[in-house]
Design a protein around this nucleic acid. Structure first.
Length: 488
RNA sequence: GGCGGCAUAGCCAAGUGGCUAAGGCAGCGGUCUGCAAAACCGUUAUUCACCGGUUCGAAUCCGGUUGCCGCCUCCA
């Protein structure tokens, strides 16, 4: 173990260490407004925090864009061979949860659990794993209160009429993340200043005193300042510090909440530990609907269920959300989902064709093609997750392999290696199916009846059977090698 | 008012100084088919919002114009 006098920055940038510490991955850091080479803090495990959803309602697909970004970052780092610890907090005690529970005549816990369950189901549909690190705000209140005690003790927070506020004047670099100039801020758009008694209107709330109705329902936590509820910024800060470290690798959120949320979370971390909270701050852009942000208040949202009712699948929605760059606004449309569906179908067809390919002599080009697709995919993804470029590499691969399948040139081993590399890529993009499609017996019978009819030239009967199979979801294809089929 | 971002084909979307401007979808043409469909193959931007400048060379850099979006401290 060697301790470098300057924290190692200078030494780590020398060639000797570059290979070990620095990755080939470049990410756009909101903190510096530049793409930087990602350098993990610990070589053994990368630590990532993502802002989770509020669970006062069924989340809409706009919420899921940043969730998809987090998932893709984690899966791509896994693809590169890194182990990742990823924490996503569940905001289950927001103002709206309390209001919503009251309207529904439920207690807040029961109310929140209902929507947390939907959130998890949605993650399943989007092929995002959710076992493990999804701590709930309501189960980490002790951490939050301890954190505020620390802030007050260190002089970064103050109590006023039984609420506790963060004193931003104490942090000289407040505003570095969002580039905000507090002297030019327009106040009071979303806050009724009369409700708060801050020393300075730019200070933000850490703990808010519970009101009478909340006290009656038991929605409060006893502290030395009074009976209070934690604020949103405090929740994210406390959870990321408690579950990860004083300084962790990446903080992922949405572009609409860089200010105030991320800025304030960062300020809490810096004030509490004296260290910078995260090295990289990634912010996903928004999902738009006819030129406006998709949001509850504009009443222009779609939930996963809304889209499923219209016949779209989770994977189609996933593809739609991930297939264009995360730092550009994404316009929602049904046409875009249709496109996603068609595109995925092409990839699935490719896999099914490979599964059913008749083995051949083998082909010298395969090694090169596999090398090219791996290389093209990771080169693009390395560059701040350029998914469009990465997918282009995949489609070029598909295009090059298809004729080899048609001409029956692939050996079994080559075929398996091609499927293997597609699986590896799909571990990141998560939209392709690799299961061999199977027919049930009824469909198989109809298929052979149709073959019989065709052999005897009874076209009307054969066409009727084709229609019946179509209605069952089976598409038949008459090819020179006989009849094949795929599932719709 | 402040800060940040965007504008590339019918649609979506890469590319940020130099080979013929990736890729996907849709369309069109072809192969196949009893006919279809699917699949596969081929094809689709002398031009990158507009004006000016720098340069041997600009979608890419600089200045300006227009249009659009997000955020500005407890909605999250």
């Amino acid at each position: 173990m060697v301790i470098f006098p300057d924290g190692g920055e200078r030494y780590l940038s020398t060639e000797l260490y570059a290979g070990k510490k620095e990755t080939t991955v470049r990410l756009y850091n909101t903190l510096t407004n530049t793409k930087e080479f990602f350098k993990p803090i610990h070589s053994e495990k990368i630590l990532i925090h993502s802002c989770g959803p509020t669970v006062h309602e069924v989340p809409h697909i706009g919420t899921y864009r940043r969730v998809i970004l987090s998932d893709m970052v984690v899966k791509y780092l896994n693809f590169k061979g890194y182990e990742v610890k990823h924490v996503t907090n569940i905001i289950d005690m927001a103002d709206r949860s309390i209001k919503g529970a009251e309207l529904a005549g439920m207690d807040v816990k029961e109310f929140s659990e209902r929507y947390t369950k939907v959130f998890y189901e949605d993650l399943d549909k989007l092929t995002i794993r959710h076992e493990g690190n999804y701590p709930k705000a309501s189960e980490n209140v002790d951490e939050m209160i301890r954190l505020v005690e620390k802030l007050v003790d260190r002089g970064y927070a103050y109590e006023k009429l039984k609420s506790v506020y963060f004193d931003i004047s104490r942090l000289d670099d407040y505003g570095v993340l969002s580039n905000i100039d507090l002297t030019k801020v327009q106040h009071s758009h979303t806050v009724d200043q009369d409700d708060y008694e801050k020393d300075n209107p730019v200070d933000f709330t850490l703990l808010k005193r519970s009101n009478l109705a909340e006290l009656k329902k038991g929605i409060y936590y006893k502290t030395r300042w009074g009976n209070v509820r934690p604020s949103w910024h405090l929740e994210c800060a406390a959870i990321s510090l408690a579950y990860l470290a004083d300084t962790f690798d990446i903080y992922i959120s949405g572009s609409d909440i860089v200010f105030p949320h991320c800025e304030n979370v960062m300020a809490i971390g810096k004030a509490a530990t004296g260290e910078k909270m995260a090295n990289f701050w990634l912010n996903a852009e928004l999902v738009m609907r006819e030129g406006k942000k998709m949001s509850r208040s504009l009443e222009n949202t779609f939930t996963m269920e809304d889209l499923e009712k219209r016949g779209y699948t989770g994977k189609e929605i996933r593809y739609f959300l991930l297939s264009s760059h995360y730092r550009k606004p994404l316009n929602f449309s049904f046409a875009a989902l249709d496109t996603a569906g068609n595109t995925i179908r092409r990839l699935n067809n490719f896999i099914q064709r490979l599964i059913h390919a008749s083995p051949g002599e083998g082909c010298d080009d395969v090694d090169q093609l596999i090398y090219d697709v791996k290389n093209g995919f990771s080169a693009a993804m390395d560059d701040d997750l350029n998914v469009s470029g990465a997918l282009a590499a995949v489609f070029e691969f598909v295009k090059a392999v298809n004729p080899l399948v048609t001409e029956k040139r692939l050996s079994e081993d080559e075929r398996d290696r091609i499927i293997g590399v597609m699986r590896k890529i799909n571990a990141v993009i998560g939209v392709i199916d690799f299961e061999e499609e199977k027919l049930d017996e009824g469909a198989r019978n109809l298929l052979s009846q149709r073959e019989e009819a065709r052999r005897s030239g009874r076209w009307e009967e054969s066409d009727l059977l084709r229609e019946r199979l179509f209605d069952m979801g089976v598409l038949v294809h008459d090819t020179p090698d006989g009849t094949t089929w795929t599932l719709k």
